[in-house]
């Protein structure tokens, strides 16, 4: 099992799973982002701290994300659109899942690439047609994986990565969202 090297510490994850089985309170995490309006539809969001394992935690470094709209939306394009960040999250989460499952199943990966396409009918957000939703019409992810495994095993990796993906779940299932004014 440990003869493959995908760089995922599966042993630590398995130990964490066992430890948290008996300690559900330590398993409660809160992820946070702080956003600040710049100008127009441009905003800057930073991520650094989170809560987990019963205490405040911090990333090694703060990450900064610029969000804006492109020129075709008559904006300055200082960064990607907010909905594109969902694609970033989905691709990153599924890729992490593929690597973890491969490590756990003893499959050596050589390359894992994916493209994520979110089809979007913008008549929804423009209010041009009330029957069109605001969000994605649908999302399609295509993986190209080179690994020491059969096609069936690779398909199983991708299927399992969706089964255990936080972002796949967040995109495919409704989430209770509260937006307040402080």
């Amino acid at each position: 099992m440990t003869t493959v090297a995908n760089g995922v510490n599966v042993q630590a994850l398995l130990e964490a799973r066992d430890a948290l089985k008996g300690a559900p309170e330590a398993a409660q995490f809160t992820w946070r982002a702080s956003s600040k309006w710049q100008n127009g539809v441009h905003s800057t969001t930073t991520v650094r701290d989170f809560f987990g394992l019963g205490q405040e935690q911090s990333h090694k470094a703060e990450s900064v994300f610029e969000a804006d709209h492109p020129a075709v939306f008559a904006a300055e394009d200082n960064g990607i659109t907010p909905i594109e960040y969902l694609l970033v999250g989905l691709a990153a989460c599924l890729t992490a899942g593929v690597a973890s499952v491969a490590q756990n199943r003893g499959i050596q990966l050589r390359s894992v690439e994916s493209t994520v396409e979110g089809r979007h009918d913008i008549r929804g957000i423009l209010g041009a047609d009330s029957d069109v939703r605001n969000g994605f019409t649908d999302v399609k992810v295509t993986f190209t994986i080179d690994a020491d495994a059969s096609r069936q095993e690779i398909e199983a990796l991708v299927a399992q990565s969706q089964k255990r993906s936080a972002v796949f779940d967040a995109l495919t299932n409704p989430t209770d969202v509260t937006v307040d004014v402080a």
């Binding site: 069936q152 398909e155 199983a156 299927a159 399992q160 969706q162 089964k163 796949f168 779940d169 995109l171 495919t172 299932n173």
Partner: peptide, 14 residues
């Protein structure tokens, strides 16, 4: 309903 129908289908097929 969940949008993950394709995945539960492929898990079952696999």
């Amino acid at each position: 309903f969940s949008g993950g129908l394709r995945n539960v289908f492929s898990l079952a097929d696999l």
